[in-house]
Simulated assay, not measured.
Amino acid sequence: MSASNQQATSNNQQLNSRRILLGVSGSIAAYKAAPLVRLLVQAGAEVQVILTEAAAAFVTPLTLGTLSKKPVLTGFLRDAASGQWHNHVELGLWADAYVIAPASANTLGQLAQGLCPNLLSAVYLSARCPVFLAPAMDLDMYAHPAVQQNIQRLRSFGNYVFDSPAGELASGLNGPGRMLEPEQIVAELVQFFNVK
């Protein structure tokens, strides 16, 4: 059994009944959202995915909706004709944790500055639960002082920002900027709720 399978098995049902909001922003690492949803569901969590327009270029709502067993939220409006909308306040109150993975440089900047151009960031501003951020971007972007300042600012707000592990990046460069692996994110959540 591989290390990742052992990790997933050890986390089985350890998030039982936990309500997890998963925000997916526009990054090549968005493809990792699919196995992350799968692992969260296997761990017993109820998962609601919020997908930005940019993220939908990398992973489809159909994929994430199938894995989460819930329709994926992609914008404020549920039905424009009737005026039905996705209530960001209700979503922020519903969740036991809000995980944003991947968190692109753009998304980190929006959250650090209190901007809300999309449902993902509006829910962040309304969330009453712990927020976990898994940055994902290229090496030079991750190392840029503006991004590092945004990360520090988000941590100062009480958010949990995972360190980005080093490794091969989509650009071919090697260094920090990778999204934390789905198995590790689930393990961090399990540990957080066990300690809590």
Results as ranks from 00 to 15, higher is better:
A170G: 02
L120H: 06
K32W: 15
V49F: 11
R78E: 15
F193D: 12
P35Q: 07
W85Y: 12
D163V: 01
E181Y: 09
G26H: 06
G172N: 12
T60V: 11
P130N: 06
L64S: 12
G65V: 12
F132N: 06
N174S: 12
V24N: 13
C129D: 13
S164G: 04
L139Y: 07
Q191S: 15
N16V: 04
A136S: 15
N11A: 14
A101T: 11
Q149R: 15
I20F: 05
R155D: 00
G172I: 12
Y124S: 05
Y142Q: 03
V131A: 02
N5S: 12
N194T: 13
L180K: 14
A29F: 09
S68E: 03
A8N: 10
I20W: 03
F157L: 03
V123Q: 03
S10I: 00
R78W: 07
P176M: 10
W94E: 11
G177Y: 01
L73W: 03
L93Q: 15
L77F: 15
L73Q: 04
T107S: 15
A112T: 03
T63N: 09
P182N: 10
L15E: 05
V123F: 00
L91D: 07
F132I: 03
L21E: 09
L133A: 10
T107D: 11
P71C: 08
E53C: 02
P35L: 06
L133V: 09
I151K: 00
Q113N: 11
M141K: 03
C116E: 05
A80G: 07
R78I: 11
N87Y: 07
A127Q: 08
W85I: 08
S25R: 00
P135S: 06
T66L: 08
S171L: 05
N174W: 04
